[in-house]
Design a protein around this nucleic acid. Sequence first.
DNA 1: CGAAATTGTGGGTCTGAACCCACTATAGGC
DNA 2: GCCTATAGTGGGTTCAGACCCACAATTTCG
Lengths: 167, 167
Amino acid sequence: MAPEEPGSTPSAPAPDGPSPARATPPTLLDLSTYLLSRTGKAARSRLAERLARRGLRLWDMAVLAALADFGPHAQRDLVRRLGVDASDMAKVADQLALAGYVERARDAADRRRLSVTVTEAGRALLAELRAEALAVQDEVLAPLSGTERRVLHELLARIHAELPGTP
Amino acid sequence: MAPEEPGSTPSAPAPDGPSPARATPPTLLDLSTYLLSRTGKAARSRLAERLARRGLRLWDMAVLAALADFGPHAQRDLVRRLGVDASDMAKVADQLALAGYVERARDAADRRRLSVTVTEAGRALLAELRAEALAVQDEVLAPLSGTERRVLHELLARIHAELPGTP
DNA sequence: CGAAATTGTGGGTCTGAACCCACTATAGGC
DNA sequence: GCCTATAGTGGGTTCAGACCCACAATTTCG
């Protein structure tokens, strides 16, 4: 299991890297679980940070995307599609409506329902957010070639498709 | 931009999937950022949940791995290597020592330093945790073949290597 | 009609992660 | 010997995410 390596005693300047003893344990690097978790976290936090600068959260983007892709939803359908808590969705929708990115209207057929629709401003915002996400992607995937990025995307898509959403 | 699709009105039973209107917005699925974030989160939370059943956190595993891979560390070196807050590391080390997975001893040369060493119990635990991580990996990467998993691992490793740790 | 279920909302809690400061003990420069 | 820097610790705060309950308005079922 090769447990013996100096590292703590800097007597032998191991050819590991520039800084001393900063390397991640191989036991962790061997785990795809670990790499996936780490890179995923990097991607998420970078995007979240960019959205935060606009006063937005990741859920805001998800809601806009759902509305732009699939058309108007009742709030409960957004809840089902995105797997958020209904109460949290109410808050997100409220914020987005206040900022003018979506419009809410009582459904005439069932007046309990609130039908949510993207506005033009919402679509424009979504386009910008998409650009931000692509920028982050470019940062994170910097070491990969175009082909490699496509391969990665395809593999991740297959994994994602099989993940239990909230069934 | 193909914004028009029924989805909300279940008049047309689109051949999307079994459950109605549960599909993730393509705008999100197109982003490798999103897929990376989602799959990474799935991996991390699954592993975290397994560790929690043993009363452990992810950091415990990271510390054990560092000690097993690189030998004894002063606490401050663990802090540097893993990028944790010194105060938090103190707590983790304390827990691990209490449970008998590591031993702490004052460094004779510099009596401010606490030298942390894995015990046999610690190594045994790490082996079990590694097995748990591999089990999670098998769950998450289920849709991929062996070759594909190797490709994915290699791509992720390259990405991870270029991520700014905390320099 | 009356009872039961559903939709949206407001106001919480609980958890983990990350961070920060004050303090003690020790070391090292001068 | 003094003065500054460093190692570890204890006791916090802050923040986001997920969750949960009680409630009003409304629909639907018996």
